[in-house]
Nucleic acid binder design. Structure first.
Lengths: 259, 259
DNA sequence: TAGTGGTCTAGACCACAAC
DNA sequence: TTGTGGTCTAGACCACTAG
């Protein structure tokens, strides 16, 4: 059983922070392994001689840091580290498309997890401001919008929305729910838009409640945002892909010259 | 004055979530502008007819999302959006070093903010495991360690730690607190290590309490982690730089070919 | 049914900011 | 001094999980 200290009334930190610090220490030192159950609120009240709200506040602190997950009716558990997906910047290499694999499937092959895609929706709609700028079209110009959610071993890890100009991809299989082998990039090349380069803009923030839901992550878990723009050999922007990834599940790798 | 709705007892969401949703809506719609003061806890209790803890819980929800900042004795305010620093992948271009500017100064010039560096510490120490792997040396091999904190307009935005092998940079100005014009990359090139390329590994997570302190960010604000490895023309890893950036202040840009 | 966390009430005292 | 948020207590009832 886990050994915890006592509250030090001389310590300037309030009791709930001291309790949180002791639990954090236990987690980081390995005294509480990933997946292990923390003492219940009742146990913390008993051990430290505090009211329930004080014990809860300590737990709340750790939830906010993403260190633990509370499961209603079961207990509070040390968050298990999810498998990390490393995304290298060659993940859109033409060689993969030639082999009939979209980028997500190619990664899954390499990293050895079971890929999945669901919640696919294709429609036409007005381009939001930031998207229109990147596609170099007027705001609200009608574009093709492809939404989908990616799963790894059945767990959602990323939601993505692609925007493509109608003159580029209108009427092609890009507008089908299943665009066929190699994904939409292969279809763009079929349509004569040979891809030349990509830019990615990477940021991080806390998720909206909707995103939390779609990615099945708890509070205290940030998301990585990646906005990718694809350019063809003419220098035209042919796709903007706006993705939101569960941050703990990802590591993005980029390689660039010193010039 | 801000107009808020009422709690709907038929709504399946608990009251505190409904209150949080109304406040969030007010913030996102612009009814509450950045820097504006939210209704006080007392005002929320009065308006919604709830106990104080319920009102606090609603505020807590928004703090966790990083949308608002509580200031003891003053009130709760909509978080002002900090200026975003866009980092392009050409920020380590040799042209800048030739002009006598380290990467951080070159960015500041371009973006028009006042740069600053403090908390500089240089020492030698054993290489941590992950660093040693990237430098391709044995773990615990003695390396040069350079720590510093970067400021933009006086506000801390990034903490960074560089690790360099002693055979590469030992005894050079890289070990001085001020390495001179062009920064340590210029000194590496002076020492014959012409830089060829970089890799960066990007992730995001919640900060440790130490990092929160150093970056002066509140709870609910994630950090971007960037681990950069510099390679010279011999293909040798000559530096690993581990950085932690306040996420809301950054957007990283990368450019790569479709191959 | 027992144990767990989720939500809520109605108070209390404290620390900090502003007037 | 007044108003603000920070912390704490001692209860209550509910919802979910598991045996």
């Amino acid at each position: 059983m886990l050994q915890l200290g006592e509250i030090d009334r001389a310590d300037p930190r309030p009791p709930y922070r001291q309790i949180a610090a002791m639990l954090r220490e236990a987690i980081e030192s390995g005294g509480l392994e990933p997946g292990a159950k923390l003492p219940s609120e009742a146990a913390l009240m008993e051990h430290f001689g505090v009211a329930r709200m004080t014990a809860r506040q300590a737990i709340q602190e750790l939830r906010g840091e993403g260190l633990v997950i509370a499961e209603h009716g079961r207990g509070v558990f040390v968050r298990p580290m999810p498998p990390v997906r490393r995304l290298a910047s060659d993940r859109f290499a033409r060689a993969h498309r030639a082999a009939g694999k979209a980028a997500f499937l190619a990664e899954a092959d390499k990293a050895g997890y079971q890929p999945g895609v669901d919640r696919i929706r294709v429609a036409r709609a007005g381009a939001p401001k930031g998207i229109a700028e990147r596609l170099r079209v007027e705001a609200e110009t009608e574009v093709i919008v492809r939404e989908r959610r990616y799963l790894a071993n059945g767990r959602p890890v990323e939601i993505a929305t692609s925007y493509l100009p109608v003159p580029v991809a209108g009427g092609t299989p890009v507008e089908d729910v299943d665009p066929g082998p190699g994904g939409i990039y292969a279809r763009l090349e079929d349509a004569g838009h040979t891809l030349e380069r990509f830019t990615e803009e990477v940021g991080a923030r806390m998720p909206t409640p909707d995103e939390r839901n779609a990615l099945e992550i708890g509070p205290g878990v940030p998301v990585l945002t990646v906005v990718r723009t694809a350019f063809d050999t003419e220098g035209a922007a042919v796709e903007v892909c706006d993705t939101v990834k569960a941050a703990p599940a990802y590591l993005l790798e980029y390689d660039f010259p010193a010039r």
